[in-house]
Nucleic acid binder design. Sequence first.
RNA 1: GCCGCUGUGGCGGAAUCGGCAGACGCCUCAGACUUAAAAUCUGAUACCCGGAAGGGUGUACCGGUUCAAAUCCGGUCAGCGGCACCA
Length: 809
Amino acid sequence: MDLKSVEKKWQQRWEKAKLNNFDKRSNAPKLYVLEMFSYPSGAKLHVGHWYNYGPTDSYARFKRMQGFNVFQPMGFDAFGLPAENYAIKTGVHPKDSTEKNIATMEEQLRAMGAMFDWSAEIKTCDESYYKWTQWMFLQLYKKGLAYRKEAPVNWCPSCQTVLANEQVIEGKCERCSSEIVRKNLTQWFFKITEYAEELLSGLDGLDWPEKTKNMQRNWIGKSTGCEIEFACESGDKIRVYTTRCDTVFGVTYVVLAPEHPLALKLTTPDREADVKAYIDYASKANEIERLSATREKTGVFTGSYAVNPVNGRRIPIYLADYVLASYGTGAVMAVPAHDERDYAFATKYGLPVVKVIERQGGDTVLPFTEDGIVVNSLNFDGLVGEEARDAISKHISMLGKGGRKVNYRLRDWLVSRQRYWGAPIPIIHCTKCGAVPVPEKDLPVRLPYDVEFRPDGKSPLAKHEKFMHTTCPNCGGEALRDPDTLDTFVCSSWYYLRYADPENDKMPFDREAVDRMLPVDTYVGGAEHACMHLLYARFFTKALRDMGYLDFDEPFRRLVHQGVILGPDGNRMSKSHGNVVSPDDYVNEYGSDAFRLYLMFGFSYTEGGPWNDDGIKAVARFLDRVEKIVLKVNEYHTGKTEPFGSEEKALDYARNFAIARVTRDLESFSFNTAIARLMELVNVIYKYDGLETKNITLLKETVKDLLLLLAPCAPHFSEELWEKTGERGFIVEQRYPTENAAALVLDEKEYAVQVNSKIVTKAMIPSSYTGSEVETFVMGLPEVVERVAGKTVKKCVVVPGRLVNLIIG
RNA sequence: GCCGCUGUGGCGGAAUCGGCAGACGCCUCAGACUUAAAAUCUGAUACCCGGAAGGGUGUACCGGUUCAAAUCCGGUCAGCGGCACCA
């Protein structure tokens, strides 16, 4: 079959019949199958796109044939740095290159033959979309979930912009690997921390990979501990956060982060020069140095003292940059005896070490950081671990000096970017009124085209006079626009909602439309988004719910990650490795169906693996075999329903077995085994067709089921054969076969016969036999008789339909 | 350091519950067809010993539970991913 021309033909027919569009009038149950939308950075689809979209489309087609009203939209995550960086390099405007890339990718996505509902297509760089991204910002602002603050932020000197914590990997920019520096800048944040607890607890009910849920749990980083207030002799109060309040009697000093608001206030005049020098030193350290656990502890004494609330001990106050300003209270109580960092610091600066925990039933070597028996702690002595923490935290709250406290590692999401190619932040800065939100009626704040986007550390928009100058919506006076754009992850945090109502120009979406279509039933995409997109989208959903715009808590009910297809050499595909496999080459030679089929068959879907040329030839051969047998059987004269003996039973069994297993496997994204079962069925059909006398009716029915089973996996190929064999209508509109349970009941089953857990023979045993009948049966087998002779059977284990194990001795 | 995952033939990978390890496919070998090759079809194909019948070993390694372990438990090693001075 010339797949190339056949594919085009069916794509046109599907389109004409609007088969790919969600049927709004149908009352069949809806099923929202979503693949993560494409980022149009390169012009062409790469293997990763095909691997994400091809098999998932087969899943969607399968569900459609099962009777679901499937919605499978596609769009483009079109804003972002790569287009802008490309522009800086080549001078091609990001809008132009992005539009061109999108056009090419759309064409390629259509050629894939996926059942995408293009009527719902969205592009995040379109005004009609980013208008509502800006609207989202305004709603979050109104709700107090978007705020501006000056804070030390991650600055990438190469990309010339700030980054979210999530975009910093080991102190380096996730895009360009430049070392991140810390800068104090006034930026916009989303208060994702407000939802930390719900983002954590909500994970339990989700059908997501455990690994991904764990990554989010880890990222949110819930920790249950205790806040304790230490009074300073100056009258100030220092609150510290600890998870080990059972060690509070061992505190020998207190440490503040160098950025702590009290740092300078608590510094005595004689210490001022040293402290200032230290603060300066700490601020110059870059993220990598600062975060390195092996870095030598440094710090400085402030000259002031505080008092331990539980024992009245006078303890010095230090500054040290091993304490993070952004976590907990930015201050810690130091217990050198029971914390490695404090121990190292105390040893270096000659501070006392007081042991208050002992190992149960063993020697205590300091620093001892595990749970143990409390000692030297007044009436708390003898308590252990959690019970000690419980008692001591209660005591502290009784003293009015603090108490139980939960902390999260999650930080608020920094959304400002000093870049051009993004949605402008809809805020106007007025010298009189401050930051004023752009009125909703004035949206969108249009991104101007004629902008000098070469980065110089300032937002490109800041240099665009016409864009910047405006009037304050509040007082009417002269005012300036916010020159920053929104992180592209803001755009992708709500796109799955817009698909449900893509043309709405009054609202981002109609609540009813969204409640009807959402949540997404099955979401498929790469695992690299675990702590970014997937977390942000959950946050948006919850915030929008609380603002009354939707009625569900979680956007993605089921999540599947496809694996990564590596180059033939086992490395990640990249130009520098020279191992990039181009889908086009294979699609041109073998067709989209064969290419998709290989992606399904050659890998475990969630694992991925190295590309291999031979595999695609194998699936092309399989399709040839299917075509041959389908056309051959089609020529047989109909009507013969005889015979129906053991050969026919075997064929019917194989057919129904395939139906049952393929259905199960497609449901669980186990595409490779689904295809394997189809290959088995084809092998059985070939064998049966080789017989002298055959039941033509049964054979034809079996071949028809084979085509139906294959239809989601090789859609064009199956349509063509469906038509060629004289069937009417589109195969994709047929019902997926369901198995006939009766055909799967065999008269006899093959048992493995074991004696003392070793297989001695195999035997066909009637399915109707009871356990004792099976035992009697196998006792008569020569291989068993021979071994049992002169011995007694102590035990007999029968696993119905599978195995018998005789224990003799 | 912490959390998680993975480890199965020459290769990609199967094996929902603990129940015949290696489905399906690739590679390789043999046979059929062919003047020949390709394509196609049929068969073999975990490893070791053996001519065969047969026997032994085997799911990273060591041990345990069980009639029975790739699967459960304990330990070790290797690889991958995430987090990491979070008190």
